[in-house]
Amino acid sequence: MKTGKRFTITTFNCNGVRSAARKGFFQWLESQQPDVVCLQETKAQEHQLQEGPFFPAGYHCHYFDAEKKGYAGVAIYSRRQPDRIIKGMGWDITDKEGRYIQADFGDLSVISLYMPSGSSGEARQAVKLRFLANFMAHLQDLRADGREYVICADWNMCHKEIDLKNWRANRKNPGFSPEERAWLDRLYDEVGFVDAFRLVNQAPDQYSWWSNRGQARANNVGWRLDYHVITPALVPAVRAASIYTDEYFSDHAPVTLEMDRQSCFSKEAGT
């Protein structure tokens, strides 16, 4: 692990890790050198990634693939060897679709999560709402286990009007529906998790996903779907959060959280 004062975690829905590689993502990653990288929607089986940049030097790389080829999938790269890797949660949607991977480092856990979208129709939105109910119970368990968590995800939903450009037109749509916003209210207000980005960046027009229709990206008509959710004890450690939009590796953009390293690992000897 690096010895600098900052601990950086990048989350990125790559919409196909091989596609992102062709667009320069791994060159950018090498220039940034984050401590942990959480990928969503890798859209590949690990055996298809043996040639190329998919196991970058200096990182311990762990993939959790969907059973269906070319679909979903998550990954975690870390400079430090994890003490433990957890793949899946014992539910069909997380395990068969490759939507959850967790890396434990001492008393800190980092999760890469790919939330179901629900945008393809009512049946899939119903699947998403069932996932949310089950996942809330899991989050309550996490809050009770004494560990600290950083959940890096394409959450596929926005909380506040500031988080998407066309909020008025989307008030009943998947991603900004009343049910999803109420779930996020409960996540933050009752269970106690924190949206780390908004701790340090309250600016409008901060988006991480744009539709491929029209000129959405050129006009910054987007949604902030990708963010780090943290346990409250980590709040004092947060230093900065940024969305990288200078290059297009995907329809999403990488989001990086910077934290104070000593605060994240203060329970460990020698930190």
Rank of each mutant, 00 (worst) to 15 (best):
A103K: 07
A103I: 03
D104H: 03
F105R: 11
G106P: 07
G106A: 07
G106K: 05
G106Q: 06
G106S: 09
D107V: 03
D107P: 05
L108W: 06
S109A: 15
V110S: 04
V110N: 07
I111E: 11
I111A: 04
I111R: 14
S112I: 03
L113R: 13
Y114C: 02
Y114F: 06
M115F: 14
P116Y: 08
S117D: 04
S117V: 02
G118P: 03
S120L: 02
E122T: 11
E122M: 13
R124G: 01
Q125F: 13
Q125S: 06
A126S: 03
A126L: 07
A126P: 03
A126I: 00
A126E: 11
V127S: 13
V127H: 15
K128R: 11
L129H: 14
L129P: 00
R130T: 12
R130Y: 14
R130D: 15
F131I: 05
F131N: 10
L132R: 03
L132D: 11
A133K: 14
A133V: 11
N134L: 13
F135C: 06
M136K: 13
M136F: 06
L139D: 02
Q140H: 08
L142M: 09
L142W: 13
R143L: 04
A144Y: 03
G146M: 01
R147C: 06
R147S: 11
R147N: 14
Y149W: 14
I151V: 12
I151M: 12
C152W: 05
C152T: 02
C152G: 07
A153D: 10
W155G: 00
W155T: 00
W155K: 01
N156Y: 12
N156M: 05
M157K: 09
M157F: 15
C158S: 11
C158W: 07
H159Y: 15
K160I: 00
E161D: 14
E161N: 13
L164H: 10
K165A: 15
N166H: 04
N166R: 08
N166F: 09
N166I: 00
N166M: 02
W167F: 15
A169G: 13
A169T: 09
A169L: 15
N170A: 11
K172W: 07
K172F: 04
